[in-house]
Design a protein around this nucleic acid. Sequence first.
DNA 1: TCTATATCACCC
DNA 2: AAACGGGTGATATAGA
Length: 583
Amino acid sequence: MPLSKYSNGIWLVDFEFHPERGVEGNRPHPVCLVTHELVSGVTTRFWRDALLQMKHAPFPTDTDSLCVAYFASAEIDCFLSLGWPIPVNLLDLYVEFRNLTNGKPPAFGAGLLGAMQYFGLPFLESDQKTAMRDLILSRGPWSVANQEKILEYCESDVIALSKLLPKMLPYIDTPRALLRGRYMKAVSAMQNTGVPIDKETLCLFIEYWERIQDHLIADIDQAYGVFDGRTFKRDRWENYLIQNSIPWPRLESGALDLSDNAFRQQSKIYPCIAPMRELRASLSELRLNGLKVGDDDRNRCLLSPFRARTGRNQPSNTSFIFGPSVWLRGLIKPEPGYGLAYIDWSQQEFGIAAALSGDEVMKQAYLSGDPYLAFAKQAGAVPQNATKMTHKAEREQFKQCVLAVQYGMGEESLAAKINQPVARARQLLCLHKQTYKTFWRWSDSAVDEALLNGRLWSVFDWQILVDQNINARSLRNFPMQANGAEMLRIACILLVEAGIRVCAPVHDALLIEAPLDQLDETVVRAQALMRKASRIVLDGFELGSDAKLIAYPDRYMDERGTRMWDAVTAIIQSQMQPMAPSQ
DNA sequence: TCTATATCACCC
DNA sequence: AAACGGGTGATATAGA
């Protein structure tokens, strides 16, 4: 990577910060900044009061300078909090270290400490780091001595970075690294925007959840007697089964199979099981206590970019509103005067597979607008004039077959999924192989490539290092998932840079926000940019998208969750009634 | 009583 | 060895 072109310097930066008022979900409150210019070797420290006086960063952030950080979205979050212009060129050594070691996890993790250790560089002990982090999170006020300690610590990270950069340079592919850096800026913008949440209802759910559970259990468990409070007891369930002479599937380990799947199977034969299945399904955890909602009622959390091996974001399920069950997405509600849109690419992985494999038949299926039905037609399983309505069952089976192929599923699992004999599943998989021969050659070649050369990579070179015993299903899936992640990153960059407020990325979808009078027009622009992102990743092949619009005062509602949402809100209503007079 | 593991549920 | 890709996280139970 040539650094000489950056005539205004190479600036290594690190902020220390804590969430505003200590509330997770709030924007960061910068405490201090240390910069180090690589060529001159000059290090400069800035405490918060100095930072607040500045209208822009205390170093050049134009096209002729390079800003370098470790997990740069955090640094950019601080830029946004301070209202500073964002650096044009951003290099994130965290992202590059993840890419360098992806698939072979470094002994000390992917943090700065892990990277330093990996390259044989000295570094601060991790317990010292923890102590310093706690000191910063305490939010002060700090004594002069402690301020000095915090600055010292911040500086030690910047100096570490200055040692790490030269070691990593030989492995860094500049244009791609800067593209990933651009994504980190978009990540920061999305984290800064966040998802608007109906906090009132959120608080009601948390407050009433145990009462709702007790209500449901009291109703149903009297016929079984297997609950101890809110806990389902396996041995009591076993007793119930013995007493009622009901056989039950077991796991490899000999334990009862208590999955919903087992309950579903047995419910068909023993209808008395059904109510217990319903109860267990509705009791599955609420998990809302960890949701990070700021004082302005917006869900903000670390999106954890590049955490997954395929390069996907991997935010915490409890912190992020898109983590828990879909019915809880009803908590997403636009602010007055605003609307939201959830835009997802249509059959993204199928489209990626078609385009990158160059399978013309598969591309044709994608372009038909209904790949699953098109597959059934191409395979000769339904007439050419078949529709979603006339051949619903066939379409569903061909759809499940397509999904099965994407995940590398075998015939037995597919058979179970579609509730058909294994022979039928085998036939479907055969039809896929016969219909999409070019795709299958491409898929085979990914496995060969990985085993031969030890790595696989996406179009912009997100790589995975592969050892001999990795399973072939992962390898076959990697090109689809990793390039899907690549496409999402490009879309985030394009939308954010176009000034669209992106609330969150969801693997193959984006949640965006706009004032109500601009919502329709913003969605049109966003969809155009998402098409553009697909062309960039797929060498001109275009993927379509579906948009679901939500206008204030409506809330987001996923059709899969409507039933549960209505049931829960009804119980809360009934529970609240007796309290009404006192309010 | 605390921790580790297995199992399960959920997301795309 | 398993045979559904990539994940996070809660809970029940076994074990220290």
